[in-house]
Design a protein around this nucleic acid. Structure first.
Lengths: 358, 358
DNA sequence: TTGTACGCGTTATCAT
DNA sequence: ATGATAACGCGTACAA
């Protein structure tokens, strides 16, 4: 039977210098591969003198561990998969940023796949990331696709969804109540005396966050006993500021009696605010505007934007911790409802008394 | 010598159901593991009838390839490492987003590590990401740390730096000329007649982009024959809008005769613009402001912000293509200078005639 | 067209 | 404290 050395000599003697292995380091240090392994993984079980020799040899050969071999042997990649609509949105970027930072302290790293807001091919993305060796998954919002649900079920991988807190879900979620977050804003406007309110939302198809917020908007109207329909405009997320402005413009033209607008993202709210001002309207005297997300910029606007603070960084951090706990402590992930509360600033006020109708 | 079957039976019979291997699929399909491998990797070399049986068996066992074993065997992980200051900044997020999208078409994925703006421990991050099996590296800006340079050199991995175009560098770069991009803005203000200009920059330590832009600012002044020093304020990147506003405030107080401000990021410029307006100054009549980056928001501000358009998405895409080409085509990465040009909008105008001094 | 045998580089087990 | 051995799951010469 071929021994290591003869095998070694069989390696292709092509142009590429073969990457050194533990055996090579060991040979140079005068020990076995096994000792080299120990020198790296449990240095306290190796004589200091040998330890030093090994390190010296490793350095000389420019040796580093082969991650694939390690992963194969240990059955772990130290990678979590992140499936997210886009990084090109402040909230998601902040969430992932925080997720990554938290993970890195434990030697884990995320592999990120952006799926866009089109959920149809999310299944293939998930397959791909799992076949890449992800030991756990972070996803955004409610999982609708039954293929995905079944795949997750059968994979026995820890999975957490974020952004939405979903009480009735089998997949654990760490997020906030999107219905409530939007409801707060509308109720506040109602309490201020508004009766003509519009909503600027993102596309709701396959997006439970938007669906919940839109539902909250409609419910609030109904429960306030208002008969008249309120317009809900769904618009694209790309160039969101501009589309917020565009929507605001047509809204103001088609519904000149509108006194307030709720936006399902600060991107829309900021665009809407600029457009209202551009059209010569005062905010909040002529129109009230409430946003959602609490971008850093919100408090700097003129007027400062009243908006719902979304705990993006906290979600990222807690999801990372939950996944880590599931791996190392074998603790099941428990759903967790985080706070998302309305921050009152200066962009909403009681509607003007009916002079406008005159 | 133990054969596969007996080996198989030796597997831990713990609680966890062992993940199926090719041999298991083969057994169920009545073929060898080798045929299963072929069925996945070169289906055209296997009889359709058998192919079908294999697929059926794989599906039944919920089988998927073991990525670690595959990576070990093939010596490839299909992962590129991304070392970036933060995701929590629109430009970096956009860059990475585009990098990732481009990669995913070729079955590659990025592993992202954020290092913050502190470059001191970047070396460890890079080691970590390479030991994780990254087949190539994307980094931001000039690499200063000699340990990093040496590590890259010895790793023989394709590496590309972005954001800065660095002509004199051994490491290829795909980016724009940060000196030129800032110089354009200052020269423009000079041409408009400004002689009292300040700069709001990010921290320049270990950040060649900021250094270049600040240098451009100083050179422009000198070449215009202006003796008087111009203030350069470096400030933190976190809560950048607010700090842009703060800096603008103290600048306006300490240098009331200032007629223009150049910002090295739109975050600063937006904050500065809001603050100037808050203080009752008109932009651009009283102060001109020029930004850098061209956030989507820039054109929506009032006044619309004149700023330098940074090709974030293009950088991400081209870097991905370059790395991919280096892997699959074995083509060396060539540096490439992209365009970053000043977009004139409404936030800069000639300075007021000297009535202010009265 | 299909199967056999073996190595990729690491680490756990067991023996010394 | 250290070494020998085997096994992780896959892909590929080579043989059939």
């Amino acid at each position: 039977m071929a021994n290591q050395k003869s095998v070694r000599s069989k390696r292709k003697t092509g142009n590429k210098p073969a990457r050194p292995r533990m055996a090579d380091v060991g040979k140079l240090a005068g020990v076995s591969a096994c000792t080299v392994s120990r020198a790296f993984n449990s240095p306290e079980t190796v004589r200091p003198q040998i330890l030093e020799k090994v390190h010296k040899a490793a350095k000389e050969l420019n040796y580093s561990l082969n991650p694939a071999a390690k992963a194969l042997r240990l059955q772990q990649t130290h990678i979590f998969g992140v499936i997210i609509p886009t990084l090109n949105h402040a909230m998601f970027a902040e969430l992932v940023n925080s997720f990554q930072s938290t993970l890195s302290e434990s030697g884990y790293a995320p592999v990120i796949i952006t799926t866009g807001f089109d959920n149809r091919n999310i299944f293939d993305h998930i397959r791909a990331i799992v076949e890449r060796g992800a030991e756990g998954l972070l996803m955004v919002g409610r999982v609708e696709d039954p293929r995905v649900r079944e795949f997750i079920e059968r994979s026995h991988l820890p999975v957490v969804t974020t952004y939405s807190y979903l009480e009735d879900e089998s997949i654990p979620s760490i997020g906030f109540d999107n219905y409530q977050s939007a409801r707060q804003s509308v109720d506040y406007l109602l309490a201020l005396g508004h009766t003509k309110i519009a909503m600027i939302a993102g596309p709701s198809q396959g997006n439970d966050r938007q669906q919940s917020r839109i539902q909250a908007f409609r419910d609030a109207r109904e429960m306030a006993g208002i008969k008249e329909e309120w317009p809900v405009v769904e618009n694209a997320y790309d160039s969101a500021y501009a589309s917020g402005a565009n929507v605001m413009h047509s809204l103001l033209v088609s519904h000149p009696d509108l006194t307030a607008v709720v936006c399902s993202s600060d991107t829309f709210a900021i665009g809407a605010l600029q457009e209202a001002k551009r059209m010569g309207l005062r905010v909040p005297e002529d129109v009230s505007i409430i946003g959602h997300d609490d971008f850093e910029l919100a408090q700097l606007l003129d007027p400062a934007l009243s908006t719902v603070k979304v705990p993006a960084a906290e979600m990222g951090k807690r999801c990372a911790e939950a996944l880590l706990n599931a791996k190392v402590g074998n603790n099941p992930i428990v759903s967790r409802k985080l706070n998302a509360s309305l921050i009152l600033r200066d962009s909403a006020a009681p509607p003007k008394t009916k002079t406008k109708a005159a």
